[in-house]
Amino acid sequence: MDLIIGQILPYTAAVVFIGGVTWRIWRWMIPRIVHNITLSPWPASWSAAIVWILWQFATFWNLLKFDRPLWAGAWFMHIALFLMLGGHIAAFYTVGLQFHLMAPGIITPEMSLALSDWIGTVLGLIFLVALLYLLGRRLVNEQVRNISSASDFLHLFLLIGIAALGNIMRLFPDYHLGYAPVREYLAGLFLFNPQPLPDHTLFIMKYTLVMTLMIVFPFSKLMHSFGFFWERWIVNRPYKEPARGLPGARLQLRK
């Protein structure tokens, strides 16, 4: 058990995830952008195009503009997800002292731990609620249900499972697991110095689900996180207009 879930699966998941994502992007790079199919009004320059793409990325602008109910679920879910990913890395690496290390004179180690707890708790709840909302939408909204396949629901269940387990460990002291034992175990993985899995059922369950997600990721629509940039790079690009004016005409634009 410890060997399979604690030692073999993590490396497998990492290889499949990194290798799979690289392979998918590699394949996207083979076909060419044949014609300029930019959407007008187009950006004035490449830098304006990049700013627009990043703006779309950060705000989910199109959803905000055209489908506000979807935006409310999708944007909060993704923002919470991104912040929590960053939070997990920072908190496990610094054992919850990340805020103290950022501003040592102002924030004490105790305050940092409390902040980490609070922010994590709030984001975790937002994440779970947003996911349930999106699941509900997919079930209730006939148009969306019509175009969904089983995998669309399974991805949501997987994320809901991870979110729910995380929230239980966070909210119920009986199931809590501190940063230190996890850090010790993960450090072992990164340094190829195997350490036993923390003896904590919920943690092992959540950890297995996360690794499953990593393995599924390159073979699923979850690749949209990268696909976003590849698609927008095609449809949001500058175009240079030819000069105006009719050569040879009696009446010219300038007298």
Binding site: L63, D67, L70, A74, V144, I147, M223, H224, F228, W230
Partner: peptide
Amino acid sequence: ESCVKCGA
């Protein structure tokens, strides 16, 4: 390969 079936 990029559609998430959001229905927008």
